[in-house]
Simulated assay, not measured.
Amino acid sequence: MTRTVLDKEIFCADIVACQETMFRTARAILQNDQDAEDAVQEAICAAFARRDTLRDPERFRPWVLRILVNQCYDICRKRRPTVDLSDVADYLPAAGEDPTERVTLWQAVLSLSDDLRAAVTLFYYDGLSIREISGVLGISEAAVKTRLSRARARLRQLLDEK
């Protein structure tokens, strides 16, 4: 069976169709707009160079998101980020603060760990299925379900939902 390589026009159209998802995913992992933009750009270049490895053009979105996630994790490994406690404190209500002033959902999502935040973003914001997330993140479907469950529990705790 001969594999056909995506031509430039189809590749570009597919990238445009999922560019928001790509940026949102990169932003969720990297928590920085500039790094997210760099990761998306690098992932697009890598995907274009390797477009002959795509077996099923219908699976373009999960394929390119997997490349993007790998790129994001490469950036994370290179920079070994440290978190300033004052940055985290901005997402959580202060001890004496009025209880009606609560953390927004997106702020709570941003305060999750990288692995939980990536799963939540891909599932709830980008609409990927458990199976697609499993392929994108390179983990089992059970691990995706576990991460989503832990993320929901943590979000409930952060948002004081009983």
Rank of each mutant, 00 (worst) to 15 (best):
R156E: 13
V109N: 01
R152L: 12
G138L: 10
S129D: 11
P93I: 02
T121Q: 07
A108D: 08
L110I: 04
L137I: 14
G135M: 07
E141R: 15
L122I: 04
T104K: 12
Y124M: 10
D84K: 07
E132T: 04
L148D: 06
D126M: 02
L85F: 10
R152T: 09
S134E: 14
V120Y: 03
D84A: 03
S111T: 01
A119C: 13
G135A: 10
L112G: 00
A153W: 09
L105W: 05
L158I: 11
S129H: 07
A119E: 03
I130D: 10
W106I: 06
T146L: 15
V109T: 05
S140W: 11
S140N: 09
D114T: 10
S149G: 15
I130F: 06
L112S: 04
S134H: 12
R147Q: 10
E141I: 01
A142E: 12
S113D: 13
T100E: 14
G138F: 13
G127K: 00
T146G: 08
L159A: 03
T121C: 09
A153C: 11
V88M: 10
P99E: 02
R150S: 12
D98E: 09
L110T: 01
D115K: 06
G96Y: 10
Y125C: 04
I139M: 10
L148Y: 05
A94D: 09
T82Q: 15
A143K: 07
T82S: 15
L158C: 08
A153T: 14
T146R: 15
W106T: 08
S86W: 13
D90P: 03
A95C: 07
G127A: 08
V88F: 12
A118H: 07
V88Q: 08
F123K: 14
R147Y: 15
Q107I: 03
S86F: 12
K145R: 15
A151E: 04
D87Q: 15
L148P: 01
R150P: 08
P99H: 05
L112W: 03
D126K: 00
S86N: 11
L92A: 09
R147F: 11
E97V: 07
D84G: 00
V109M: 06
A95G: 08
Q107W: 03
A108R: 00
F123I: 09
D84R: 05
I130C: 12
L122S: 02
R102S: 02
V103D: 02
V136G: 04
W106N: 04
